[in-house]
C-alpha cells in the first residue's frame, strides 16, 4: 500500500523535486501528503452516505426514543416543539407500561391484548418465509440443472417481485374475494363470505407474500448454486455418493451463506409487513381498543403503529416503533448468534 503511494506523483514539479533534489525528509512528507489526500477524498466520497445515514436514521432513532418518552399528541399539541418539550406526566416510560398492561375495567388503561395480537399476526405472516425458501430452493435446483431456457424461467419468476405491491394487492382482493377466481376454483372463501375466518384471510396474505417474494430468492439461490464448487461434486460422485447425499452434504453447506442472507433479510422485511394486508383488507380499523374482534386479528404490528399514528397519538406510536426496532434487533442478533455457533461446530 505504502509502496504504491510513493509512486504517486501529484504533479510534475513534485516529481522532479523528489527525484533530483529532495532530501529524505521531503520524501517522507510527500508520502504523508498522498496518504492524507486519500484520507480526505475517502471521507468526501462517503460523506453524503454518512451524513444521510446519521441524520435520517440514527438521529431519527434517537428522536423516536425521545418522542416515545413524552406525551406527544398531534391533536392536542400543535407544534413539534411543544410535544417534545416535556416528558410524559405519568412517568417517562408510561407508553411502554401502557402497551404491556392489560385493559382494565375502571380507568386502568392498557392495550396488551392489541399489542400481543398484532405482534402475533406479524409473526404468523412470517410463516411465509420458510415456505418461500423451501419452494425457491427447489425451483433453483431445477433451474440450475443443465436445461435450455432456464434464463427465461428466471425472468418469469422474477416478474412478481418487481410488480407494484398496490396493484398486486388489489388483484388479490379480486382473485380471492367473494366469488373471485380462486374462490370459484377451490370453493373456499378466503377474504369475505361464508367460511372465511381470519385464518383464511391470513393465509391469503401468506400466499401473496410467498408468491411475490419467490423470484428474488430464486435468483439469489441460483447464484449461490452456480457458485458451488463443482470439483467437490465430482469427488463425491467418484466416491460413490448419490445425488441426495451430494445435495445435503456438499451443496447445502456451500449454499449456507446465501440461505443465511436470505433468512436475515426476509425476517427484517417480514416483521415490517404493512402494505399487503392494508390493501387487501381495505385499511384497518386499527388504533387501540377501537378495533373490532373480526378485523384486529389481521392487523400486523406496523399497521397497529400506523393506526396510532393516524389517530395523532405520536408518542404512543413511537413507543411501539421502538419496541419493533428492539424486536427486529434481537431477532437479527439471535440469527447471528446461531450462525456463529454453527461455525464453531
Amino acid at each position: 500500500m505504502d509502496n504504491r503511494n510513493v509512486s504517486l506523483p501529484q504533479d510534475a514539479a513534485a516529481v522532479q523535486a523528489t527525484e533530483f533534489a529532495a532530501p529524505p525528509v521531503a520524501r517522507k512528507k510527500r508520502i504523508n501528503r498522498a496518504k492524507l489526500q486519500e484520507n480526505i477524498w475517502g471521507w468526501i466520497f462517503v460523506s453524503a452516505l454518512f451524513i444521510g445515514t446519521t441524520v435520517f436514521t440514527y438521529v431519527a432513532l434517537v428522536l423516536s426514543v425521545w418522542i416515545s418518552l413524552t406525551n406527544y399528541d398531534a391533536f392536542i399539541m400543535t407544534t413539534f416543539w411543544e410535544g417534545l418539550g416535556t416528558l410524559h406526566p405519568e412517568g417517562a416510560f408510561y407508553w411502554y407500561k401502557f402497551m404491556f398492561s392489560a385493559e382494565g375495567p375502571f380507568g386502568v388503561a392498557g392495550e396488551s391484548a392489541d399489542f400481543w395480537g398484532t405482534l402475533g399476526t406479524t409473526c404468523f405472516y412470517l410463516i411465509g418465509i420458510p415456505i418461500g425458501m423451501v419452494l425457491s430452493l427447489g425451483i433453483a435446483v431445477l433451474m440450475t440443472r443443465d436445461i435450455k431456457g432456464s434464463g427465461v424461467f428466471r425472468v418469469i419468476y422474477y416478474i412478481p417481485t418487481v410488480a407494484s405491491t398496490v396493484s398486486i394487492a388489489i388483484m388479490w382482493t379480486n382473485l380471492f374475494g367473494s366469488n373471485g377466481f380462486i374462490t370459484q376454483l377451490l370453493g373456499v372463501n378466503f377474504i369475505t363470505g361464508e367460511g372465511a375466518t381470519y385464518w383464511t384471510q391470513r393465509w391469503c396474505i401468506i400466499i401473496l407474500t410467498v408468491w411475490k417474494g419467490l423470484g428474488g430468492t430464486v435468483v439469489l439461490f441460483v447464484a449461490g448454486l452456480n457458485g458451488v464448487n463443482a470439483s467437490y461434486h465430482e469427488a463425491a460422485e467418484i466416491d460413490g455418493a448419490n445425488a441426495w447425499q451430494i445435495f445435503w452434504r456438499i451443496t447445502m453447506p456451500q449454499l449456507y451463506p446465501t440461505i443465511f442472507y436470505v433468512l436475515v433479510t426476509s425476517v427484517i422485511g417480514g416483521m415490517q409487513i404493512f402494505a399487503e394486508p392494508d390493501l387487501v383488507f381495505n385499511g384497518y380499523p386499527v388504533a387501540g381498543n377501537q378495533a373490532t374482534n373480526g378485523t384486529r386479528f389481521n392487523t400486523p404490528f406496523v399497521g397497529f403503529i400506523y393506526g396510532n399514528f393516524e389517530q395523532g397519538e405520536w408518542a404512543h406510536a413511537s413507543a411501539l416503533g421502538i419496541v419493533l426496532a428492539v424486536i427486529i434487533f434481537l431477532l437479527t442478533l439471535i440469527q447471528f448468534g446461531l450462525d456463529s455457533r454453527r461455525e464453531k461446530i
Binding site: 427484517i268 405520536w314 416503533g321 426496532a325
Partner: peptide, 8 residues
C-alpha cells in the same frame, strides 16, 4: 426499521 423512525 422504517416504521420505528417514521414518526420522528
Amino acid at each position: 426499521p422504517f416504521p420505528s423512525i417514521m414518526i420522528a
